[in-house]
Amino acid sequence: MARDERVFCIGEDIGIPGGWGGAFTVTLGLEQDFRERIIDTPISEAGLFGVALGAAIMGLRPVADVQYGDFLFCAMDQVVNQIATMRYMSGGKVTVPLVMRAPVGATGRGAQHARNPEAIFYGIPGLKIVCPATAYDAKGLLKAAVREDNPVLIFEHKLLYGSKGARAETEALDASSEVPEEDYVVPLGEGIVRREGTHVTVIANLLMMHRALLAAERLAGEGISAEVIDPRSLVPFDWELVEASVGKTMRAVVVEEGPRTGGIGAEIAASLAERMSDYLLAPVGRVASPDIPVPFAPPMEEFYRPTVERIVEAARGVVVGSGG
């Protein structure tokens, strides 16, 4: 915002003095430096996403956020019918530099503040989608998104916002990492190898990336070498990185927190089957949540979301079942 005066934030409870800086403190205190560019809206998601679109096509660079990813559905017409199609319908004449932020993940709040809706938006042409798993990527991807001339949807995991502070979640994971003070971007569409391995490629983002790393550690104890890839962006997707890895390991497991049917894993597995059939020694494994709404009771929520153990089992199954 300091670098580009066209950038402004718009959302609910994002800059009320004495408030929380958004549901998860992401914009806390920004109103002190940028009062004119921190716009608190009524509880009107369809309205605020449409307003952001209108401002974007006139050359501003809005960052619109919802308090919970589930609320994106209140703005679905604007996100899907308007934001994702505006440039296309105009024949390429209109530019939509618009960032949308949405917290996702089950955190003891029941079914309506919990969903991982990434797969639903993954199937909407016209939206770029990123999912930062570390503090470094959160900064770098946000900066890249703000500088992008297309709509970018950023899914942020509630358990990665931080284990400290007023709004820290009880089960929050320490996702902190070295975050340089200086300006840098993590380019959209660039994945990263989080851990190198030779027997199986585990593809996971957000919270699942951290669990995949823990799983890889355990697998190593069993003599299975897992390579963990964090795609960081879903659209565009870094196929080059994934293909290079699967070309080496010849096995893959996709992990996601959302439900299994029609999930991210389904799309990646199908694409890998098409692209890598000469290499794959086993069908691509999928680890996902069951096809149910997110439950409340802690033991049920724990049962719902893929655990380290389930990732270990899936990877082991793929490797052992194919002579690894």
Binding site: F8, E36, R37, I39, A46, G47, L48, F49, G50, V51, A52, L53, G54, A55, A56, I57, M58, G59, L60, P62, D77, Q78, N81, Q82, M86, M89, S90, K93, V94
Partner: peptide
């Protein structure tokens, strides 16, 4: 539509243009 002429590509979802016009107004004000 043609934004160069001051017309956003027409919005065929009933009511969908109301927030967008509002956002255009916001950009003028900002």
């Amino acid at each position: 539509g043609d934004l160069e002429k001051g017309m956003v590509p027409a919005i065929a979802i009933v009511g969908g243009g109301v927030p967008i016009a509002t956002g255009i107004g916001l950009s003028f004000k900002l």
